[in-house]
Design a protein around this nucleic acid. Sequence first.
DNA 1: GCCCGATGCCTTGACAACTTAGGTATCAGC
DNA 2: GCTGATACCTAAGTTGTCAAGGCATCGGGC
Lengths: 112, 112
Amino acid sequence: MSLNDGVLIAGTLDVLVLKALSWGPRHGYGIGRWISESTDAELAVEEGALYPALHRMERRGWLESKWGKTDLGRRAKFYGLSRKGRRQLAAQTKRWKSYSQAVSLLLEKSSI
Amino acid sequence: MSLNDGVLIAGTLDVLVLKALSWGPRHGYGIGRWISESTDAELAVEEGALYPALHRMERRGWLESKWGKTDLGRRAKFYGLSRKGRRQLAAQTKRWKSYSQAVSLLLEKSSI
DNA sequence: GCCCGATGCCTTGACAACTTAGGTATCAGC
DNA sequence: GCTGATACCTAAGTTGTCAAGGCATCGGGC
């Protein structure tokens, strides 16, 4: 994980998924693609992290799922934000802002 | 961990510690205080996370330690950056920048 | 004299999350 | 018929943080 080796910083995946769904339901595979495409592959989500995260978040009541069909006519599970999920998105976005700003400020301090 | 419950995002502690030492050696307790003081307690490091992190980073050759005395005349273990540690600081700082910027950009996309 | 809080270090156990490495099924295109 | 993309999933292993303790020293207040 993290800044040394991993591809993702542990704990930031949830808010990315929530954000991906803020425009409306998407299926898991599409969420992963959205994240990587809209960051020019700067952020990449392993499927082994993504699917468990979706299940976890649904268990917590942040997401609601429903089987449906993709544009290509394929079977897929679509996830949508619940009311609780929207609150989480707002809260975690806010927390990310203050957290990342705090870290950035520290790291920008001129070392000698 | 992370944006929901924890106080720290898993994987960002290392770079904070490295940064704390970029002005010269410090002891563990002082590193923790530096982080929390210079962020107005926005970032707080549990000792149960800090000390294992120091040992880990020393094991990886990023830090070098030496027992000494604090300003108050108390016994303490001082950690300094090795050459490898400086490289890590540079690399992880860079990685944090691009990573956090990517996340921030995503989260700032206007939802609907 | 005694206790408390601050300074300083440490470890253990539980838990959460990510990575690695698989697996399944369908469909389009060559 | 095979490969790659689409779409889902799981299990094992590793890592890192949190919670909750522990120890020792020192200063100050009562």
